[in-house]
Design a protein around this nucleic acid. Structure first.
Lengths: 211, 211
DNA sequence: AGGTGTGAAATCGTTCACAGCC
DNA sequence: GGCTGTGAACGATTTCACACCT
């Protein structure tokens, strides 16, 4: 079954919200409640949730526990992913301790860098290897996913090494580069300056309008 | 003139690419070249670029300098934005030194936190104030934009204080929360775990398919 | 009454295909 | 021949509107 990307994005947010609501022991929510809290239209919420079967009760709403279970099921990965992080600068270190990477559906098992102060040491409990050993370690350690937090000049080089032995299935790219990868590797990018610049652009336009 | 969000996103990437090409003294590029480098369809590139006037030469391509100037003009803010950063944890510090915030179109002029070790000190050259002083400092220092890098429990509270005096026009939110803001405040969010989870979701689905 | 599930309509964004210019 | 600019076709996503259930 094919699921549209905006839908997946919202499902992830539903799960997050539902986890909170479940903790607060709220028994039911309506699509309108969810929409208000997450800033989506109620009809959008209903469409998303009905996509995987009828789960709500007409006239009542959705049972929080049941819905959470349902949504989690949809999102749950089949296995625990082993992740390598390339580039342990400030951003890399920040991400290492970031909640996003503390889930139990994945684990950062190895770090890669080129700095003498890092290679050969443990950083926040994970071993750090030299980028030159990366292909080897990826194979040895069964790493299928990498998080890329290197400066833009190094990005493509690191990607080439990482993907060279065909083990890597996905890359989460924090560098501001459009990286080239083999066909079967999936890339998602988080580009901080794009979001900042978008905000600036639309702020400018709103100002113009209101003159 | 209204510009679609995906278009703005691409324009930002065109500018980035063109800056590089200009440095390399490349005189002209075609829509196909640009598309290949950024992974967009050539027709998409042409549509985006023609949206603001005819700027290319048929049979030749686009003059790099001229196009860069043109695109920059479209994206250029009307003023230099003064930014406040709320929450100086690891992520905040990483962003402080991140290239995204080093541009000359904006400047982080103040930091806000609650930690004793930070408040009252300078961090990477910027003064850090207590969150309780935020409303006051925002007014005094003419801050119109905030970057929010606080834990999720603190997010809404900080947003409420920051927006309380109506000076703040935009928020770049790094916390995994749908924050509530006054109508005239624009919010963009960078949600790291959403991107990671999306990647995991589609990787799972690709695996299933290929069975 | 109140709230879900869902086809149909509307909106938004991308891609095609080709005329027109260099 | 090569490449842009653009209306028209297509595809994707959101929203509406209402039947149906409790």
């Amino acid at each position: 079954m094919k699921v549209a990307e905006p839908t997946v994005e919202r499902l992830i947010q539903y799960r997050r919200l539902l986890e909170r609501l479940a903790e607060e022991d709220l028994p039911v929510v309506s699509s309108r409640d969810i929409g208000d809290m997450l800033k989506f239209k109620a009809s959008q919420v209903r469409k998303d949730l009905s996509y995987f079967g009828e789960i709500g009760k007409r006239g009542v709403g959705y049972n929080v526990e049941k819905l959470l279970h349902h949504v989690s099921e949809i999102l749950e990965p089949t296995c625990k992913w082993r992740i390598g992080m390339i580039g342990i600068g400030r951003l890399g270190e920040a991400l290492l301790s970031h909640k996003a990477f503390l889930g139990d559906r994945y684990e950062i098992v190895a770090l890669f860098d080129v700095g003498e102060k890092k290679v050969g040491h443990e950083i926040m409990g994970r071993p750090c290897f030299h980028v030159d050993e990366m292909a080897e370690k990826i194979r040895e350690m069964d790493i299928e996913l990498v998080v890329l937090t290197v400066p833009k000049n190094a990005a493509q080089h690191c990607v080439d090494i990482a993907t060279s032995n065909g083990k890597i299935k996905g890359i989460l790219n924090f560098s501001p580069m459009a990286i080239a990868v083999p066909e079967d590797v999936m890339v998602y990018s988080v580009d901080i300056s794009i979001e900042l610049e978008k905000l600036l652009f639309y702020l400018k336009h709103k100002e113009k309008e209101s003159l």
